[in-house]
Amino acid sequence: MNKNKIDILLNKYLKGTISREEAEDLQELSNLCKNNELKEAFRKQWDKYQLSPEMNFPEIRDISNKIHKSIHATRKKYIINIWTRIAVSILLIVTTGLSVFLMIDDKQMQTLGEREIITQVDKGQRANITLPDGTTVQLNSESTLSYRQDFGIQNREVKFNGEGFFQVTKNPDKKFIVNTQYMDVEVLGTSFNFFAYESKDIVEVTLVEGKVFLYTNTSPRQTTILEPNNKAIYNKNTGRLNVEQTNTTFETAWRATELAFRTEPLTVVLAKIERKYGVIINIENEQLFSEFYTGVFEKEDLTEVMKVLHAHFQFTYKIKGDTISIK
């Protein structure tokens, strides 16, 4: 045993300046060293503290006497002298204290790990984030992504609401899991678009490359494996999960600041315009609910987009602040 090291560590512990790593070293050294070596180390510490007026000798004496009685009851022929009793008393204090020290430190680490890191995107905004494992996520307007601070240590799980494009770093030992209210997605390394707004009736997962396994969180549970250029669509109202082919252009157009629609209901078109430009659109003409639209808006501002839709559907509209009324 390194006598100097245990002396230094004991002194630090009693002063309250010991670090976690040093506390672990002291605990290990205490378990490995011989009784006479411990006795000598504790004697040195006792010599330092016995002259201190802050030393509560009666308390140490009581602890020592209890230990002595316990030892004497099981080994009657064993005689323990005062220095050994003092050493055992200090050892009890040190080892108990170290256990508490390490336990509190572990508890603090666990608490820190359980804290969530949350990214929220405001209406009309977007955000790009990089997770600790290198995975990148591009979040669309009004989306939320959260994960625990210890992400990647034991698992790779995130909670998600909204729309996002995930480019997942490959790790065969740890699956990447996206949790939503109605559907979860498991991947090892891939790229996919996830549309999962809690306020919408449809959840969509569009796979660009790789492979994903997804399953619904409602009864009856449904599962499927997606291949590239496939899209899984879950209808919250009917509880049905369907898979169809797609070229992914329209599902991921929002990433390039484009609005792309392929025979989309006008209500869906207007909902995407709301998210992109951060506005509220009220439709007062119910006949428009049954209309569909196909087209792409690349860099047009809101006024130009509304002019195009006005010409196509022949409706009238009024823009006031961040609210658009369609008649």
Rank of each mutant, 00 (worst) to 15 (best):
Q181V: 08
K15D: 04
D7K: 08
N128W: 10
N179I: 02
N155I: 06
G321C: 02
E264T: 13
K272W: 05
Q108Y: 09
N285M: 09
V94Y: 02
V243M: 05
G278S: 03
T246F: 10
N36R: 13
G189Q: 01
G189F: 00
L226D: 01
N128I: 11
P132D: 05
K327R: 14
K200T: 11
F194W: 04
R20T: 12
D47C: 11
Q108N: 09
K231N: 02
H310E: 10
F160Y: 01
E298G: 12
Q245W: 07
D322N: 14
S146V: 03
T246Q: 06
Q108P: 00
E157A: 04
Q120T: 15
S290M: 01
N128H: 09
F213S: 13
E227M: 12
T169D: 15
Q138H: 14
Y13H: 05
T136I: 07
G164R: 00
K320C: 06
T111V: 15
I117V: 08
S64R: 00
V279S: 07
V243H: 02
Q167N: 14
P220L: 01
M183G: 01
D47R: 13
Q120A: 12
L102Q: 06
I71H: 00
N11H: 05
R156K: 05
K66Q: 11
I60Y: 14
Q245K: 15
F101M: 08
L14W: 13
A271N: 15
H68F: 13
S141T: 04
L10D: 00
L309Y: 03
D106Y: 10
S52E: 15
N65W: 08
Q287T: 09
T303H: 12
G16M: 01
F195S: 06
F194K: 01
Q110I: 06
E244D: 15
W46S: 13
Q167A: 12
E59G: 05
T95A: 08
D184Y: 04
N230C: 13
K200V: 10
F315E: 02
T206Q: 02
W254A: 01
E114F: 04
S141A: 03
V208Y: 01
T130V: 12
N230Y: 11
I202H: 09
N229P: 03
I117E: 06
G16K: 01
P132Y: 05
I18L: 10
L51K: 15
L270A: 07
L32S: 13
K272P: 04
W254G: 01
V308F: 00
D62Y: 08
I225S: 09
I71T: 02
E28S: 10
M1F: 11
N242Y: 05
T216Q: 05
T190M: 02
I8D: 14
A253S: 15
D133W: 08
L188D: 02
P58R: 03
V168C: 06
V205W: 03
Y215W: 13
K12G: 04
I90T: 08
T144G: 04
F297Q: 01
T249K: 15
T238D: 08
S199H: 12
K174D: 02
G164T: 00
D150E: 09
L214W: 02
I281R: 02
T316E: 15
K174V: 00
R115C: 11
I281D: 12
V212H: 06
